[in-house]
């Protein structure tokens, strides 16, 4: 196993670790989504790139590249779905948050509808 593979795996696991630590440390659901989605996505992509570098051009690395594409497309979409779902269901932001334009607009709509 070459040094480049080890370096890529280390970078990937560093970001994975940062993302999971963010999942533990951050105060509310939206901040946790931010940390975990970004970091774990890039971390896993680096691990898959390490696979590509190690095997060169064969079926395993091709599957790894397809996996990178799938993860890049699906992971932000899943995060978006969870954020929207939990906000619609009424789970509040952290009390230290600065502003919530989404809630303001929704309340405005219900008032004008009544």
């Amino acid at each position: 196993m070459s040094n480049l593979v080890i370096i890529f795996l280390s970078i990937g696991l560093f970001f994975n670790f940062a993302g999971c630590l963010g999942l533990i440390r951050f105060p509310d659901i939206y901040n946790r989504l931010q940390a975990s989605t970004k970091c774990v996505t890039l971390g896993t992509i680096f691990i898959l790139l390490a696979v590509v570098i190690h095997f060169g051009w064969n079926s395993i690395s091709l599957k790894a590249i397809l996996c990178v594409v799938f993860i890049l497309l699906t992971s932000p979409t899943a995060a978006h779905a969870i954020a929207r779902g939990s906000h619609r269901a009424g789970f509040p932001l952290w009390e230290g948050s600065i502003m919530d334009r989404y809630r303001e607009d929704q309340e405005g709509e219900t008032e004008s509808a009544n």
Partner: peptide, 19 residues
């Protein structure tokens, strides 16, 4: 939602594990 996020992230981590 916290549990849902954690399950989502666990799924992506397992992809890395399989790799």
């Amino acid at each position: 939602p916290d549990r849902t996020v954690a399950i989502d992230i666990l799924g992506i981590l397992m992809v890395g594990f399989c790799a």
